[in-house]
Amino acid sequence: MNIRKAKMNDLDEITAIEAECFPASEAATRKSFEGRLAVYRDYFWILEEKGKDGNKKIVSFVNGMVTDSPNLEDEMYENPNLHNEKGNWQMIFGVNTLPEYRRRGYAEKLINELIFEAKSNGRKGVVLTCKDKLVPYYSKFGFESEGVSESTHGGAVWYEMRLRF
């Protein structure tokens, strides 16, 4: 098991994992990931594991941008140029783990790494949106629910969660 930052040659694998983890209406496209990787690839935390064939395989990843905006806005998903390297808030756009690798603590390791780096970089905190069934999961990291988000991403109801440092 190894945690690392993304590279552009991870694009196809990341896109495939996203498509497996989210409904098509919510999943980021290859084009969207390409833009994100071009602008803020260091904000992709990847967990890879050696497969039975000895090759490394991405099994989980977390990604998001940094911004001064305190709230996660739908436009951020598609416009990587809204990333502000010196911003106050670390956003999380997606937490993805392949179904056959879930319930092993992989997403937790990546989220903790993201929180550690955000804190180390002097951010005010981390913001994400999630569906109501995941509010308790993110609460265990210290995120607090701020209620239903203004986001209409993918036509779903999202709850905005904030972890303040």
Rank of each mutant, 00 (worst) to 15 (best):
E49P: 01
N84L: 06
Q90K: 14
R164N: 09
E49T: 07
T15F: 03
A16Y: 03
P80K: 08
K131F: 08
V66R: 00
L114P: 00
W158L: 12
K119Y: 07
G125W: 10
K56V: 06
E146P: 00
N81V: 12
G35M: 11
T67G: 03
G125S: 12
T129V: 15
A27K: 08
F33H: 11
S120P: 02
H83M: 11
R164P: 06
S151R: 04
Y137C: 08
N79H: 12
G154F: 07
F61P: 03
N81Y: 08
G35F: 12
R162N: 14
K109T: 06
R162P: 05
N96E: 10
G51M: 09
S145Q: 03
K119L: 08
I14V: 11
F22R: 03
G64S: 10
C21W: 00
G122Q: 13
K52M: 10
F22M: 07
K86S: 13
P80W: 04
K57Q: 15
K7M: 07
S25V: 05
D12G: 07
M76R: 00
F61E: 11
E26D: 11
N96W: 00
G94N: 01
N84S: 11
V62R: 02
N2V: 12
L82D: 09
E78M: 13
E85C: 08
L47K: 01
E117L: 04
I3P: 03
E117Y: 05
M65T: 05
L163I: 04
K52L: 15
F44L: 03
F93V: 03
I115W: 00
L114W: 01
E73I: 13
K140E: 05
E20A: 07
S32E: 14
K50F: 04
D42A: 08
I46S: 00
T67R: 01
Y43L: 10
F116E: 13
G122D: 08
R104H: 14
T129H: 13
I14F: 02
K5V: 10
E26Y: 07
G87K: 11
T97I: 05
E117Q: 11
F93L: 11
S60G: 13
K56R: 12
V95A: 01
K86E: 14
L37E: 04
P23M: 02
D132P: 02
Y101Q: 06
K57N: 13
S32G: 15
R30D: 14
Q90M: 15
K50C: 10
D42K: 08
L163P: 00
S151G: 12
W45F: 15
I115F: 02
F33G: 00
Y106N: 07
N121H: 13
K119R: 15
Y40N: 06
G105V: 09
V66I: 14
V39Y: 09
E73P: 05
V62Y: 04
K86Q: 13
R30Y: 07
L134K: 06
K50I: 06
R102C: 05
N63S: 14
